[in-house]
Design a protein around this nucleic acid. Structure first.
Lengths: 214, 214
DNA sequence: GCTCTTGCGGACCGGCGGTCCGCTTACGCC
DNA sequence: GGCGTAAGCGGACCGCCGGTCCGCAAGAGC
């Protein structure tokens, strides 16, 4: 229906998750960016509860309807925020260098993975909390690949385990809300959190392939 | 006002957290019970989102204000619900027979504790989910003793660990939302969940005090 | 039975997520 | 460059929720 303009490939933005999605108007794209930026700043400075559609719209200098049209609903917005800082992490553990990426033994990969995820979530705590509060955050959207990756590594480490359940336990043990409580109420900083997560994993990673115990 | 006659004083409920709190009027106590019962049924049948103060009041046949006066706010109500099914569990792991109660080695106690907590939360999933969704559910109210207990056991098992962080990880690994996803999206039943939790703990419990590995 | 205190109920409030529709504006064509 | 059109925009609007408040009813003590 609309004349398909080949869109000079100089701007091959990574904005085509959907297949038949046609070009976004320039002002629309600009508004999307402004909204995302405003939302990020808002939640970073005032916590997840401040992530109100109204407040975001106001901070971005657009109307409320615009926010909803760009992101569908509140969950869509938080998901976009989450995606933003998770993307490079996904790239790293899927295709990056070891020990995070392929090439290292699964025990080391799992440990590197968890330690890095703790750091990532601790660094983006407020945004992570907001994303976690979204109701439909579990399924295949962002945590899907993460969960699958953990499960795969667990299976490589010990095929007798129910890797999907174990993966779920591990991922949720270091959920943003948990890290938040620990940094808030206890004197835990990121290295301590990482150490504790390592300790918890050690038993699992040691369950085979380590000849001697301390 | 209603034919509902609750047991007179044969049940000495432990309702004296405040010092100078004087007796509750009979109709007030009856309403408290009706509200609790209605809320429990509501959340069991329709999920945590159905736990609306309005809906609870309506289902209990009282006014909205009454619900608020009895329980303060939404968190107070969910907390009361949580308390209800956690009380006997607390009694069991604090003063009951081993391996849950005192008398068994800490490895066995921790395992028994986690396995039982998984069962308890799986059996009361909807209520547990509702309680978890309450914002201020973390601190010393109900999960405080639970957290402390886990931390104590962890410390006994391996004093070199940061027991508070490890305890937080363990408790949150088996959070209601996690169990909910696993029972919903995977084919996990309670025994499988318990087995998986056991597997995760095994590494920790084996970290000392076990001379030979299988 | 009288009084006083406690409890009750639902109208009310502010704010939220989400929808809708008339106006504006960028885009592609000529 | 001008124009028609469709995409985009904004904020009024809706229903619902948590929480408050105050006039009224009904137990409790005498």
């Amino acid at each position: 229906m609309v004349p398909l303009d080949p869109t000079p490939d100089s701007e091959r933005r990574l904005e085509l998750p959907m297949a038949g999605q046609q070009r976004e108007r320039a002002d629309a794209a600009a508004n999307r960016e402004r909204i995302l930026c405003a939302a990020r700043q808002l939640v970073r400075e005032n916590g997840p509860d401040a992530l109100t559609m109204q407040a975001v719209a106001c901070a971005a200098g657009v109307g409320k309807g615009t926010v909803f049209r760009r992101f569908g609903d509140r969950d869509g917005l938080t998901h976009a925020l989450l995606d933003d800082y998770m993307r490079e992490f996904q790239e790293a553990f899927l295709h990056g260098p070891p020990p995070l990426g392929p090439g290292a033994p699964p025990q080391e990969r799992l440990e590197a993975f968890v330690v890095e995820l703790v750091r990532l979530q601790a660094d983006n705590l407020q945004v992570a909390l907001a994303a976690e509060a979204a109701p439909g955050h579990a399924p295949g959207l962002v945590y899907g690949p993460v969960l699958l990756h953990i499960a795969t590594l667990v299976h490589e480490i010990d095929p007798t385990l129910d890797e999907r359940l174990i993966a779920g336990f591990i991922l949720n043990a270091i959920a943003p809300a948990v890290l938040h409580r620990m940094t808030g109420q206890l004197d835990a900083d990121t290295p301590k959190l990482q150490d504790a997560a390592r300790s918890l994993l050690r038993g699992l990673t040691r369950s085979c392939a380590e000849p001697s115990t301390a």
